[in-house]
Amino acid sequence: MTRSWWHTAVGLLLTAVMLFPVYWMVNVSLTPPGDMRKSPPDLFPGNPTFEGYARVLDEQLPYFGTSLLVALGTVVLTLALAAPAAYSLAKLRPRGRGPLTFVLLVAQMIPGIIMALGLYGIYVKLGITNTVWGLVFADSTIAVPFAVLILTSFMASVPDEVVQAARIDGAGAFRTFWSVVLPASCNGVVTAGLFAFLWAWSDFVFAATLDSGGSMQPLTLGIYRYIGNNNQEWNAIMATAVVASVPATALLVLAQRFVAAGITSGAVKD
């Protein structure tokens, strides 16, 4: 048991190193603008200012709401598209699914900026730039291929006998999917949903190209405002960042167990 203490000490040290940038973010968010460029910088906010946070609460709440809507919308859209497809790929295995899987794999690697240029043309034509659901569609392109692949390997691990049994009980393909396979792959659904949420939450490229003009803008653009304009207000930037990571952190802590299980069982069964 003495060795355990030694491990804890090393673990604490490693965590401290890893989280230093996060600490630094918090530190900077509390530093008054005048001390920002002090050399060497203060390791602790000696006379902290909460000005940054006051501004965030004052200016960023609408952005916050938009981000939440976009992220949740992306989760719903992603799962609605990915779950049935994954069920088909995993359990119905129709002919010609191989190329489709390959397309999904490649689709994941296409940089968002390249997609954004093409999407912008379409969006302008349809008049859906600067809308929440336009952004939801764009953000889902990051998550859909991943979600299909993860859910496929997850649903593949649902025993065929269970599916067979449902069939014998007279359930059609959709019933089987909805009442048997989907509930059985709950971990996978949570994982895919969480990733969709995180990506949409932190997306900047699509937001900047497709949604930078209207009144419904996400949080990343709110932060970018502080970076891009005539004054780089680090305490406001970092305060927004701190606030922005709260819901994501809460979500991850809640869902962590599912995620780990989701990814690995997907990986192992692949």
Binding site: L19, V22, M25, S202, I237, A241, S245, Q256
Partner: peptide, 15 residues
């Protein structure tokens, strides 16, 4: 250890 993952990239990069 998972916290860095949750920050929007624009934030990590700025930091």
């Amino acid at each position: 250890f998972l916290v860095p993952w949750l920050l929007p990239l624009i934030v990590s990069a700025s930091t």
